[in-house]
Write a protein that binds this DNA or RNA. Structure first.
Lengths: 153, 153
DNA sequence: TCACATTTAATTGTTCGCAATTGAATGTGC
DNA sequence: GCACATTCAATTGCGAACAATTAAATGTGA
């Protein structure tokens, strides 16, 4: 019987790689989010920062970075763009002048109401039950945490 | 009983978002891959392109883009860097002069052997059985395809 | 107190990722 | 054959993402 590929090559085939599945799924999510977030005037990473701030306000850059797994090289320019859009304020902490505290402006708080429509639209696009999505999410988070544990070694 | 958050905010909480799980898992994969790919002189997206070419050579840019869900704005500069690294050659098709065909150089072919070590290391870092990973991959691919189906509407 | 390490953001440079546009080659309908 | 649309890659501009470095503030030990 003819074989298209050598069995030794199976681990290198694109379709066998979970990392590509995750990578391409992330981009697919991004493309679904784009038109929804355009209405809010946010990019997807900016939306993530706003999610963090809607949960808790007036936090240092470092805290945002730890929650989103991002560093200041990504966050500093992103936060400056959110500040230019009048959604956040950036102020040096008086207790510790190394820290820059990020606080929502009234417009930043107000945007939360418009954002409530987003998760519903994503759920619809997923074409999947909530319980299935929650199960997948938990699996993916567990995998992510195992990967991140390896990095610190 | 005290509640930390309003129930109406649950869909907006970061930890409830599968998209953030996928987004952060993709970054975690990237960080695990980085030291492995550094030895090959490749970035992760460059590695994906090489995976495609190791399966089939001498293909137009468009074909690579369709497999990886990337467009020429991403691929053109990336392929030029692979060409500068002497891993691929870029030649205009003689049958259709609009197409640029991407072919592996001998060095590009040879790199495949060094790359075989990569999937093993990733598997180890995942700390997970192959069957579990395959199951997750299939679920994530199915979700990705449903999301991509919505975009074309 | 003072030298030293640590913490925190900001900065710089490189590489993705994509939208929008351009320009050349090809296909088509009349 | 010729106007027209379509296809394909390249280009431009902007926003991430991250490594590496810098600089200022803070903490620590002798």
């Amino acid at each position: 019987m003819p074989r298209k590929h050598s069995a030794a090559d199976a681990p290198l085939r694109l379709d066998n790689q979970i990392c590509f599945a995750v990578y391409s799924a992330a981009h697919a999510f991004n493309r679904v989010y784009k038109p929804l977030l355009d209405r809010l005037g946010l990019t997807y990473p900016q939306y993530l920062v706003m999610l963090v701030l809607w949960e808790r306000d007036d936090v240092p850059v470092k805290d945002i970075g730890e929650k989103l797994f991002l560093d200041s090289g990504t966050l500093t320019p992103l936060l400056k763009r959110l500040e230019a859009a009048h959604l956040v304020r950036r102020t040096r902490s008086s207790e510790d002048e190394r820290q820059v505290l990020i606080a929502l402006t009234p417009q930043g708080h107000a945007l939360k109401d418009k954002a409530r429509a987003v998760p519903q639209s994503i759920l619809a696009a997923s074409d999947c039950s909530v319980s299935e999505l929650v199960a997948m999410k938990d699996e993916i988070v567990a995998l992510r945490d195992r990967l991140n544990a390896v990095i610190g070694e």
